[in-house]
């Protein structure tokens, strides 16, 4: 298990209390789970993804991660419509453990309210949250 100070928490992302991250990429937003989440869950063995075209509200469940330990729901950091899913995770769910930010983005959405990004935690605030 990583020490909190060893976590990789990139500064250009917004984080949720549920350990998802969101990254603005032009007009879309990519969503994944944090280094803390993958470290706590252990080996990810399966990812359930939504369909392109599905719409979700902020906080809605959009998929699940299966780790060796448990089944964990994934929640939307922002509301929007799914425009892409990372199909590489279907065959290689371990990418989430190996590279939770770049290779293992989970979905890409067209946000219905881009200002919701401002409500997410900055990296330093997220780390403070983890430290309790």
């Amino acid at each position: 298990m990583k020490e909190l100070d060893e976590l990789n928490l990139p500064g250009n992302l917004g984080y949720t209390d549920d350990h998802e991250w969101a990254q603005i990429t032009g007009k879309t937003v990519r969503i994944g789970v944090s280094d803390y989440a993958q470290d706590q869950l252990g080996d990810i063995v399966f990812v359930e993804l939504p369909a392109v075209g599905d719409s979700f509200g902020k906080g809605d469940e959009f998929g699940t991660l299966e780790s060796v330990k448990a089944v964990s729901e994934l929640y939307m950091p922002m509301s929007g419509e799914v425009v892409a899913v990372n199909t590489a995770l279907m065959d290689s769910p371990e990418l989430i453990n190996q590279d939770p930010y770049d290779a293992a983005w989970i979905i890409e959405i067209k946000p219905s309210d881009p200002s919701e990004y401002q409500q997410l935690h900055k990296a330093a605030a997220y780390l403070d949250l983890l430290k309790g």
Partner: peptide, 12 residues
């Protein structure tokens, strides 16, 4: 220990 840094899958 539940698993070590190598991960439960590699251990299995």
């Amino acid at each position: 220990p539940l698993w070590y840094p190598s991960g439960a899958k590699a251990e299995h």
